[in-house]
Amino acid sequence: MDIFTQQLVNGLVLGSIYALVALGYTMVYGILELINFAHGEVTMIGAMVALSVIGVLAGVAPDLPGVLVVLGGILVAIPACMLLAFGIEKIAYRPLRKAPRLAPLITAIGVSIILQNLAMLIWGRQYVSFPEILPTTKFEFLGAHISLLQIAIVVLALTIMAGLWLLVEKTRLGRAMRATAQSREVAELMGVNVDRVISATFIIGAAIAVIAGVMVSAYYGLAHYYMGFMLGLKAFSAAVLGGIGNIAGAMLGGLLLGVIEALGAGYIGDITGGFLGSHYQDVFAFFVLIGVLVFRPSGLLGERVANRA
């Protein structure tokens, strides 16, 4: 088996998940210049809700194909998390719109702690495992094993990214989002209901996050009330890597971070002469984050801040 190809594949899979979560960070930052630290937790809640529904569905309808069961879980979790994100923005962030920037940031951290604890109360401290209902077909490709699930994750993620790109670039709502990101005041002068556009941004980000949350729990076979923390931090790093506020940047940053991490994990043992094992893979995200912040704070595709109209 070829480690390089295998890790590249694994990295692309993880990276597409990071990219999906990163989109939520970057869209909100683009419009409000707020780092919505609660976004990782929304992703976690999405996974948890979906998993609960999946568990119930798999129990009452054992003959239903696994894909449909998972789809059912997603279809319940998406509106639930859309509502959650809408509520978070409206209750926690909107009243602070004119406050100094530190206030909403701290609020975001608070919201994320609340959501984590809420999830712990509802689902407990134990891992919730993902039932083995999805096909486990594997293919050989250039010396790497690729599962059907991995292919599905990457294809679905890329489709969602393409859809979001179309939404932002080609639709009336997307144009209003871009206008609002540049100047809320002028967008209002065009007749845009900026509050609604901001709500829409949170809601869209949450829907995408749910799918990412289900992907990651299907991939690792489990979900946990704490999973949103690390996933959120990595997705945030990916958004910063790509240039926070930039949608294409979040996609690129996510994929890149996934690949860096997987390759790093694959070779870290060789590099350190066996001193560090592959369970250190998490450190790479933070090396990348620190590296970007030091050498290119605007990120790979980030715009010059002075360019804001």
Partner: peptide, 26 residues
């Protein structure tokens, strides 16, 4: 009512055509 604000307030990262479209937003 429409206001062309002091300093113009164009959307610099939107194209000219998109700026016009924003004017017709409603």
């Amino acid at each position: 009512l429409a206001l062309v604000p002091e300093g113009r307030g164009i959307f610099g990262r939107l194209t000219v055509a998109e700026n016009l479209d924003m004017g017709a937003y409603l």
